[in-house]
Write a protein that binds this DNA or RNA. Structure first.
Lengths: 192, 192
DNA sequence: TATGTCATGTAACTGGTTACATGATTGC
DNA sequence: GCAATCATGTAACCAGTTACATGACATA
């Protein structure tokens, strides 16, 4: 069954609802919370996607008990649709790495500023590793059939962050010495 | 000097012209060729960016010798502008990893299809490593002050591709056995 | 003289973000 | 009663892609 050209927002929305029925507002929170380290959706996308999914019969709206809003739950056709979407080939997003763009033209920028960029990247990688550790702790308590799959996404993040950190260290070491005083780096040897 | 909110297309365009003056058409080819493994621009972006840069005095247009079009070269203000742009903090692009999105909901998709996704990723990582090796060979011949910086971007790609390949292997091994006959995976033991 | 490549641009569309408008419910 | 949060949406905008229109030059 070919799936008509679609944004992956639908996948994220139906996927999140496959775990648990919830409101659009909670959906956003869940996407930030659970998928945040590798996926992102904005409000402006979620509600229209939800409306389309409702029109297509993929989700059903139930009046929420004590709260004002409504709760959306995945229907059987919706689950089937989700399976189709997940089976779609992964389309590679066009690469746009701002760090590498700067480093590529590093000789215009100077070694000192490049080292700063690399130090930044290294630090962010370290912070990412901490958040992954926290996610791992949370996942340890849960016991659902999806857990092994969720863990895969965490180990991906960890592996990439560790590699990034190591590369940033090595790269900074491989950079030429900075002879330019305007960037404020200390000279390699002491002055009298 | 704060740089007004800008797209990074300008950085790529001015950066490429800092290496060598060329036409808009050649610029596109150079961006694909040299930055292709971590950056991407389309025609629809390049010409407007070039026109804006010309209006701002960052590039100068010279009549091309034997060809019909013109050749753009970076001016001194343009080089200064490029330095400012490169010094801008790297803004993290909102994460959108289609592979992880699929794996996260892997229990809906089934282990067999997940293994296929991982095998795909592993193969693409292997192919990427080959193209990096080719880039390395090309860079070996050149001798310009930017070479150490360009090599950094290659080693980044190599490190990430190697990590991706290894993770994909480990992940496939960690997946539960596939008991679902509809996905067409062979059973772990022989049948009588 | 036909074909391919170099070359320059524009217009329409798409996907996505941001900011705003609006109101219900809950807890203090 | 007031503030915070839950909740649902829309409108305007922006970045970026795709497809198209156009033509010069080289060469077979």
């Amino acid at each position: 069954v070919p799936v008509a050209r679609t944004s992956q927002t639908e996948t994220a929305v139906l996927g999140a609802l496959s775990i648990e029925p919830m409101s659009g507002y909670a959906l956003r929170a869940a996407i930030v919370e659970a998928l945040g380290h590798f996926w992102h959706e904005s409000f402006g996308q979620i509600y229209p996607a939800l409306a389309r999914a409702e029109a297509a019969g993929h989700v059903r709206r139930r009046a929420g008990g004590r709260t004002s809003g409504s709760v959306f739950e995945l229907t059987e056709p919706g689950r089937s649709r989700l399976r189709d979407l997940l089976a779609e080939p992964v389309e590679a997003a066009p690469a746009r790495n701002g760090l590498l763009l700067r480093l590529f033209f590093g000789d215009v920028l100077g070694p000192g500023a490049c080292r700063e960029l690399l130090a930044d990247a290294e630090q962010r990688a370290g912070e990412a590793l901490e958040t992954y550790a926290a996610i791992r702790r949370e996942l340890a308590d849960e016991d659902d059939p999806g857990r092994p799959y969720r863990l895969l996404t965490v180990s991906y993040g960890e592996a990439m962050a560790r590699t990034l950190r190591q590369w940033a260290q090595d790269a900074a070491a491989a950079l030429p010495e900075d002879a330019d005083p305007t960037t404020g780096w200390p000279p390699p040897t002491a002055q009298p």
